[in-house]
Design a protein around this nucleic acid. Structure first.
Length: 425
RNA sequence: GGAGAGGUGGCUGAGUGGUCGAAAGCACCGGAUUGCUAAUUCGGCGUAGGAAGAAAUUCUUACCGCAGGUUCAAAUCCUGUCCUCUCCGCCA
């Protein structure tokens, strides 16, 4: 959520930003309503002030005068209530508009209406593999080594769910160990989070559950939702808290399962593990001071690169265009890994995403920082980044490191945790 | 799941209808003083919103877990709810 005062004072900037992002937003209406709300607020406060002053007189007043003063107080309260309810209605309407207004955008982010405008800014250290045989996709490889069972997943939970088996399980655990250990070395606090969160927390992060287009599973008869990412729980972890400035940046690495309905995703090119309803994810999250967030964003991007370089997976880094940014993101980088089994001759597939959300999430979650010996507090900045989304990382590992006979070479970084050099040998 | 107790400012903790944004202590900050690694003493010390001002600042509203209710007036009374603790039950 943007700051009301900011929107009011920068209406044209905000409008232009909404246009770049392709998000229709009623900024003019917001300005009109917000100005009206402020006058209502002043009126209500003035009535309230008078009523408070009147009430204060009663205790000291002579008994004979009390009834008259009480009556006066009653009238003032009624007037206050009338104005207040007008104010509250406006406030609600304004909040609804503001919820749909996306974050401002980093000046360097490429401007464009969709992912066609995304800008490739770097490549990983590993070259795209050339095979002297017809490479298999991860489904074929998984079948050979009995690693993934979609049929059983469908029997138990429906399409889009799956069982990992045998070496896929070791691979999942190895990827987790590898990522978490590397991030601990970089000062991240490891956190295993709840897999559910209440609706308020989801709103704070910028998710809108329980709507027709929602990506979120909700639990019936409760206020709980299955999380789509540990970003939700890690951000919510410090909701309403005031962090000491000297403890920032605070970096967390969370482990959670992620659940997504993928409503509206039907028909989009995807097979196997690429787009599923549940997967495990290692997620980075950071709380920073405002002047730290750009640097930490670069750090998160670099760590994602380090992880995939170590996994010897070819990738490209993409600077996401304005029209393809999610609402809370100020800037977003994606890593797209080469997946030899996608399309006819391989294709890039998104494996990580890191966003600087500036104070957009912090404002609604009310996460602030306090600097020693300074008056007041300020909103922190929040950032998130995928370390490893297990299902997609497994695709990349299996398909890039396959050999002609169908065995899969385990990248050196994972061997300690996998306990073997090859899958299928 | 059952029974009980409790949620007050950074912390401890007082406060059962008006003079309470809230005593006191601790911590912290500033000054004074004493020549000794600290004591004494004085003062300050919450957050957010709004208005005025170039600014320091001033005025004002809200906030005593949260949401409602009663009342001219609520930290205080009522209802609901969440959380914490203790005991019991169940349990990986």
């Amino acid at each position: 959520m943007l700051d009301r005062k900011f929107v009011l004072e920068n209406a044209e900037l905000v409008k232009a930003n909404c246009a770049h992002r392709g998000t229709p937003a009623e900024i003019d209406k917001f300005v009109e309503l917000e100005l009206l709300r402020k006058t209502k607020l002043s009126q209500a406060e003035e009535f309230n002030r008078q009523a408070n002053a009147t009430s204060a007189k009663i205790g000291a007043a002579a008994p004979a005068e009390r009834e008259a003063i009480k009556e006066q107080g009653r009238k003032l309260r009624e007037q206050k209530e009338a104005v207040q309810s007008e104010h509250d209605a406006l406030d609600k309407e304004i909040a609804a508009i503001l919820t749909r207004v996306p974050n401002m955008t980093h000046p360097a982010a490429p401007i464009g209406r969709d992912d066609q405008a995304n800008l490739e800014i770097a490549r990983g250290k590993t070259a795209i593999p050339t095979f002297d045989f017809q490479p298999k996709d991860h489904l074929q490889l998984g079948k050979i080594h009995d690693m993934i069972d979609f049929e059983a997943g469908a029997r138990v939970a429906g399409a889009g769910f799956y069982f990992l088996k045998n070496d896929a399980v070791l691979l999942e655990l190895a990827l987790q160990q590898f990522a978490v250990h590397l991030l601990i070395k970089h000062g991240f606090v490891p956190v295993s989070t709840p897999d559910v969160a209440n609706t308020e927390t989801l709103h704070g992060i910028g998710f809108i559950p329980r709507g027709p287009e929602t990506q979120i599973y909700s639990i019936e008869n409760t206020d709980l939702n299955l999380v789509a990412t540990a970003e939700i729980t890690l951000g919510g972890m410090y909701a309403g808290q005031v962090l000491e400035a000297e403890s920032l940046p605070l970096k967390l690495v969370g482990i959670s399962h992620c659940f997504r309905t993928e409503a509206g995703a039907a028909g989009r090119a995807s097979k196997g593990l690429y787009r599923v309803h549940q997967f495990t994810k290692i997620e980075m999250f950071a709380f920073t001071l405002p002047n730290q967030s750009d640097a930490v964003h670069e750090e998160l991007r670099q760590l994602e690169c380090d992880l995939f370089d170590a996994l010897e997976i070819p990738y490209r880094v993409v600077d996401t265009a304005t029209g393809d940014l999610g609402g809370p993101a100020y800037r977003k980088y994606d890593l797209e890994a080469w997946m030899p089994g996608r399309a006819t001759a391989g294709e890039w597939g998104e494996v990580t995403s890191t966003s600087n959300c500036t104070d957009y999430q912090a404002r609604r979650l009310n996460i602030r920082s306090r600097t020693k010996n300074e008056k007041g507090t300020q909103l922190v900045h929040t950032l998130n980044g995928t370390a490893i989304a297990i299902s997609r990382a497994i695709i990349a590992v299996m398909e890039n490191h396959q050999l002609a006979d169908g065995t899969i070479r385990v990248p050196a970084a994972l061997r300690l945790w996998m306990g073997k050099e090859f899958i299928g040998k």
